[in-house]
Design a protein around this nucleic acid. Sequence first.
RNA 1: GCCGGGGUGGCGGAACCGGUAGACGCAUCGGACUUAAAAUCCGUGGGGACAUAGUCCCGUGUGGGUUCGAAUCCCACCCCCGGCACCA
Length: 818
Amino acid sequence: MYDPVQIELKWQAYWEENGTNQPDLESAERPFFNLMMYPYPSAEGLHVGNLYAFTGADIYGRYRRLRGDDVFEPIGYDAFGIHSENHALRVNIHPTELIPANIANFERMLRRAGLMYDWSHTVDTTDPGYYRWTQWIFLQLFKAGLAVKKEAPVNWCPKDQTVLANEQVISGRCERCDTPVEQRLLSQWFFRITEYAERLLDNLEWIDWSETTRTAQRNWIGRSDGAQLWFPVPDTEEQIEVFTTRPDTIFGATFMVLAPEHPLVARVTTDDRRAEVEAYVRTTAATDLVERRKVEEKQKTGVFTGGFATNPATQEPVPIWVADYVLMEYGTGAIMAVPAHDQRDFEFARQFELSIRPVVSPASTLSPDADPAAVELDLDEAFLEHTEDEILINSDRFSGMEADAGGHAIVEWLAERELAELHVNYRLHDWCISRQRYWGPPIPVINCDECGVQPVPEEDLPVLLPFVEDFRPDASGVSPLARAEEFYRTTCPGCGGEARRETDVSDTFLDSGWYFLRYPSTDFDDRPFDDERTRKWLPVDMYIGGEEHAVLHLLYSRFLTMVLHDLGYLEFEEPYHRFQKHGLLITEGAKISKSRGNVILPDEYMSRYGADAFRTYLMFLGPFQVGGDFRDIALAGPERFLNKVWDSVTSAVSEGRAGFDDEAVERSLHGTIKKVTEDLESLDYNTAIAALMDYLNQVRAEGRVPSVDEVRPLVILLAPIAPHIAEELWERLGGSPSVFDHVSWPEYDDSKLIVDELEIAVQVNGKLRAMVRVARGATQEAVQEAALREDNVLRQLDGGEIRKVIHVPDRLINLVVR
RNA sequence: GCCGGGGUGGCGGAACCGGUAGACGCAUCGGACUUAAAAUCCGUGGGGACAUAGUCCCGUGUGGGUUCGAAUCCCACCCCCGGCACCA
């Protein structure tokens, strides 16, 4: 009988010895780079969710290989970062010890899962030979003016006295001690990704990605078209700049609101209001961002500054308020408030009894003889929706105009006085890459009192992460590296004087932003990526990964690729030809997580059923791109299926019959090849497996022993999904190993799919009443004649007159009597 | 609130462009083999009515609509999952 574990060990050893999975990176003729998102090597080991994703990607790679491509399928480890560091803190083992052990464990598990990895080209982001080039990329951005240092708020836990990453703040509280988190201003490094916002958005039009992923990126970049407007502050030189998507509503701007951090707050505040305003600003600063943005508590807060600005359209003075519902990091940090047409402004106006002036209304709701420049309206809530016939009202000479056109006219009119211009605003922020942590690549700059910020010379890279026994973040709010004197004390590359190294490390997303560029070039240690290798293998042909990275990782890696392209290092500006997301694996209807205690260990299942059956099951339980429900009882199906495949092929071999003696089986074979080919191409693995099961059921019908020719194609079609058993059976069929080296994908013949006679559905008034056998391509007359010979059809017709006949050739006929 | 995905037997899920709903598999039940069990094989398999083969009615979240014909298209609504969220 079939012993999966033995066979799997045999073939894994064969692949390893013969370099089966290592394409010749120099001379491959049809290079195909099949990439999957590399994992973070957790202490728990390989998660079934990881394996689900890798298996799905691997099947596609193996399929391409059988189609004749030279497939390069590498794997690596995203081993730096907060995840790894936090885990090290929790178990109190130094990451330099913990991470290599985790990686070794991962590699062991990955090797037994039958993945087509080229183990001679792996990447580990914590290897100095890798992060040297991560630092190099930082330097290229620095030199191009795309890496800048500026002040930004960070999350600060006053009890633990440490900086927290956003991921560590759970509903405004520290994940460790539950203390409400505060904001602190720190000087940090940013990559100016906003410079690339438009290009990142434009290219989404043509890259071959899942639609949902492109939509997610579009939303994240968040382009808004509108106008920049300036509200002068009387008796000063100041103007308050605002961004709005509704310049058409400017006549309804009855007050202004500044974010508490806005630089003009102090300037516009009058002396009698100053104490109150400052108190408000201080309170806001002490509240964390997450808490501050909770929208559920509808109560708006804010204070009047005592100051006024001039509405450039009405020339009326409008009061200036400060409120935390205006965010400094979006737009200009100041708004013109139009309570009649913005729900937030409306609520604020109601609460503080500010005036509300409607300026847009559907024409149909106004009385025909009313003057649109003087309409009285009482609103219960802001009027937001757009109607076909909306016109401007109470807007001086623009009243009566269609709203959109009116908005344009208003901007043009104000532009003459340099008080307005059209403007595009993005939700996307610059990418903060500084981390006040230990476990990451040190940011390669040196601060000199004389020369200022100096980049580390490229020949001095890598800046090694020193071993620091106590890697805990501390009260200072700076990286633990700031306590390592032998690390930060250095000399200035400019003047040679005493200087201090940057002690922050960079974000993990910088490590993962370029790892795919490294894979083909891991054998070069004097360059991040070799030009020739890169030209041959990149951009990535197929990238499969989780939707959770739809924005951050996929956006950052697109950005870095564009920058490296602009700097002349890469010929392409988009890193991935095709990206497909995979679905989420759940179990018994619930999300898989450690806290639920329903984590599934692939190791156990692979020992019990073999990697092939486990792979087959994972791909069979639902559509790969949607996900599915893991129930271990259902593993029995794929296990039986592979057993039957084994049984059929081995008995076919011992009987040794060739050819096709059953026309129906041959036809079914061609149908199966067609179906499986199409399904693998579109990643519909569940239905591909169903088609293989179906075919097997047919060749085995009534205890039949199939011929060798009937099962040989089956073995090849199965190879991407269950590679070990396919190798073994291929060898037993007399093929020379590896099946992936010596075989081409079966072709189907359309002419073999044609049947002479088929069953046609007969409907009466749209309801199925009978099936009739007719010749293929039978005419409507012939089909109708056959249908009218059926008792049941005649009974349903009940002698009535046939008023209409719908005939779908080779499929259905519908007789309408009514 | 906004964006995206989804709701089909006891369960996981099929169904191209509107054309035989429930492929394939799991579980169940019945049978064969066996001293017995496991494994294996054969059969059953949405609900209901009349009914021995059969025939009819109902049935793809809910209510309407378009059509000869709707799981599929349109309108309104309910629920679930994921992401974003005071974005001006």
